[in-house]
């Protein structure tokens, strides 16, 4: 493993420190934590519902890169691929509550759900109103009442954008939670990997693929997917993912939004080529794409690969997706 780091244990605090030092007009670090909170003038005078997200590190720019006017109020960074602890989340909640309550955006992993839950219990003991929405957009995993359910992946960035925009516009906590849930219900993602990520503490890639193989349906923590196959031209990959995702949308009329998300080790060049193929195929299918975005939004360390997210949208979703925000990375 070759990585530009110092000690493995210091990765997260050093990363957060680098991010805060290079963006001190936008964010500050909450003392004694690896949580960051808005630091802009507008935030100090603002009266809105706080929006807090967080999770394991290794998905940068998620979540800290989305803290700022119109998106998140604060983000809490756990260790690499490890949920942050309740005390840190609790500090972030306290730092952003302005009396209107706080919405927690949690990716659906047992660790995240449990730690955010414990933090919620702590904050409620302080009489802070809390609602939680759990993002589970990864359709490569089957859902069932008896299992952990689907994972939260790249769609999370879109949820944060829409909910963050609505919070800025003054929406109440209850309505925000409803809006967020409806975004989640309409957001579906599948990812592919060409090369697994190397967790620094582990020192080698989470799995091995042959020189000509890719894996369909992988998660953002090296979770294995549903099939390992020979790599196909981008067009065919786009077709495969689109077909899988569209099965989930019975109604293919109306507006859609798409996100082509790089996993961290895949150049923008390939992401744009893939996006071109996706938009061509959706256009052929007469699907109306009103918003699209391409880039490394929700990564998995140095994983090579990408994911496609398709959202069945409406005027409200599209409006908040398109609105300018002031963050490090949107």
């Amino acid at each position: 493993m070759k990585k530009i780091i110092n000690n493995v244990e210091d990765i997260v605090p050093e990363m957060i420190s680098g991010l805060v030092k290079t963006n001190s007009d936008l964010v500050r670090q909450i003392e004694g934590t690896t949580a960051v909170v808005r630091n802009d003038e507008k935030f100090k005078n603002n009266q809105q519902v706080g929006v807090v997200s967080g999770g394991g590190s290794g998905h940068e720019p998620l979540h800290a890169g989305y803290v700022g006017d119109g998106m998140l109020s604060a983000a809490v960074a756990g260790e690499v691929f490890t949920s942050p602890t309740p005390d840190q989340i609790y500090e972030a909640i306290k730092a952003v509550d302005q009396g209107q309550g706080v919405l927690l955006i949690v990716k659906n992993y047992s660790g995240d759900v449990m730690n955010f839950d414990m933090a919620k219990e702590m904050a409620e003991a302080d009489d802070i109103k809390i609602k939680t929405i759990v993002v589970d957009d990864d359709i490569s995993v089957k859902n069932s009442e008896f299992t952990q359910g689907k994972r939260g992946v790249a769609g999370t960035a879109l949820v944060e954008k829409i909910v963050g925009g609505a919070a800025r516009s003054g929406m109440s906590l209850d309505d925000l939670a409803k809006l967020g849930q409806s975004v989640i219900d309409n957001t579906k993602t599948i990812g592919i990997a060409l090369h697994a990520a190397t967790v620094p503490a582990v020192g080698h890639p989470g799995f091995e693929l042959e020189k000509d193989q890719i894996e369909y349906g992988i998660g953002i923590h090296n979770e294995r997917g549903y099939a390992v196959e020979k790599i196909q031209p981008s067009k065919k990959l786009a077709h495969e993912l689109i077909e899988k995702i569209l099965e989930e949308f019975k109604d293919q009329t109306g507006q859609f939004a798409i996100l082509v998300n790089g996993m961290g080790g895949t150049p923008l060049m390939e992401q744009y080529i893939f996006a071109n193929d996706v938009l061509k195929e959706l256009d052929d299918k007469k699907i109306d794409v009103e918003f699209s975005k391409v880039g490394n939004l929700v990564t998995s360390l140095d994983m090579q690969g990408l994911s496609l997210t398709i959202m069945k949208a409406n005027d409200e979703f599209i409006k908040y997706l398109k609105e300018p925000v002031t963050t490090i990375a949107w």
Partner: peptide
């Protein structure tokens, strides 16, 4: 455990 482990195992052992 709660304050330092994180992940799933932190809240569970905690």
């Amino acid at each position: 455990m709660i304050q330092k482990v994180g992940g799933a195992s932190g809240p569970l052992y905690g």
